[in-house]
Computed example of a mutant assay.
Amino acid sequence: MSNKVYVDVLAEFTTDGILIPRSLRWKDGTVYEIQRVNDMRRATSLKAGGVGMRYTCMIDDRERHLYYEDNNLWFVEGRA
């Protein structure tokens, strides 16, 4: 069963006001660099629930979804 895993994210705003995540810290303290953001769109997490901006990111050469919720928290879809 999947759930939300809240993570700390280092992000920055571009000069045109777009929020871009640069790295995330997993719950065990490991920091992962976000190599590239392939897509950004408002979306619902079908696996974990919740809605917000979904960032499709390359992390460790694998495509992952990172969500920024309306409550200003970041999460990824995890496994229980």
Rank of each mutant, 00 (worst) to 15 (best):
V76C: 13
E69R: 10
K47Y: 05
A43P: 03
S2R: 07
R62F: 06
R22L: 15
G52D: 03
A80I: 11
T44N: 14
P21S: 06
V31L: 06
D39E: 15
D61G: 05
I18S: 11
A80D: 15
G29I: 12
L46K: 14
A48W: 04
A48K: 11
K47N: 09
N38R: 13
A48R: 08
D60K: 11
H65P: 06
G50M: 07
L66F: 02
W26M: 12
S45P: 05
K27R: 13
F75M: 05
D16W: 03
D8T: 08
L73F: 04
M1Y: 09
E33G: 10
F75R: 00
N71S: 14
D28H: 05
S2M: 08
H65D: 12
F13L: 13
R22C: 12
N71L: 09
R42P: 01
K27V: 15
T30Q: 10
Y67R: 07
T56H: 04
D39S: 13
P21W: 00
R64P: 05
A80C: 12
D28T: 10
P21H: 02
E33Q: 15
F75N: 00
G29A: 14
R62N: 07
R62T: 13
N3L: 07
L19Q: 13
E33D: 13
V31P: 03
K47F: 05
R25V: 11
P21R: 05
M58F: 01
Y6F: 14
N71F: 09
A80H: 13
D16Y: 06
R42S: 09
M58C: 06
E63T: 10
K47G: 02
C57E: 01
G17A: 06
L19V: 07
C57F: 01
V7S: 01
G52E: 01
S45V: 05
C57Q: 03
R22W: 01
P21C: 06
Y55R: 03
M58T: 12
Y32I: 03
R25P: 05
A80R: 12
D61I: 04
E63C: 08
W26T: 12
H65N: 12
T14R: 05
R62S: 04
R41K: 15
R62H: 10
F13V: 06
M1G: 11
N3E: 13
M58W: 03
S23W: 03
V9K: 09
E77V: 13
S2D: 03
M1L: 07
A43G: 06
Y68W: 13
L73S: 14
E12C: 04
R41N: 12
G49K: 12
L10R: 11
F75S: 02
S2Q: 05
D39N: 15
